[in-house]
Amino acid sequence: MPRPFTPKVVTANALLEGDVVYLKADGAWTRRLAEAELLDEAGLAELRLLDAQARAHEVVGPYLADAQAGPDGPEPVHFREDFRRRGPSNYHHGKQEAR
């Protein structure tokens, strides 16, 4: 039996700032994971990734990251994505600084 598909988000680093971005349903990039499009179908996820890869003038290294639905939108599954969403733990820098 095939393994159940873990939902994904498309994520990358912005070309100019280098910070973490996510792909929204309307095709725009967002700095907030909660605003990302949660992709719960493998074919759609691959399609969105291909679109993102074609936008090399905006982002670097797009990939599909595992995510899950939360009350306010997609949430990370793995701790690495949690750190990417938040910023480093030793200073209040990165995305946690902006809030």
Partner: peptide
């Protein structure tokens, strides 16, 4: 490879 030769990485949150 050009940026790496000049010490520029892309890391988790930034360059």
């Amino acid at each position: 490879p050009l940026r790496l030769m000049n010490g520029l990485y892309l890391q988790l949150h930034a360059y």
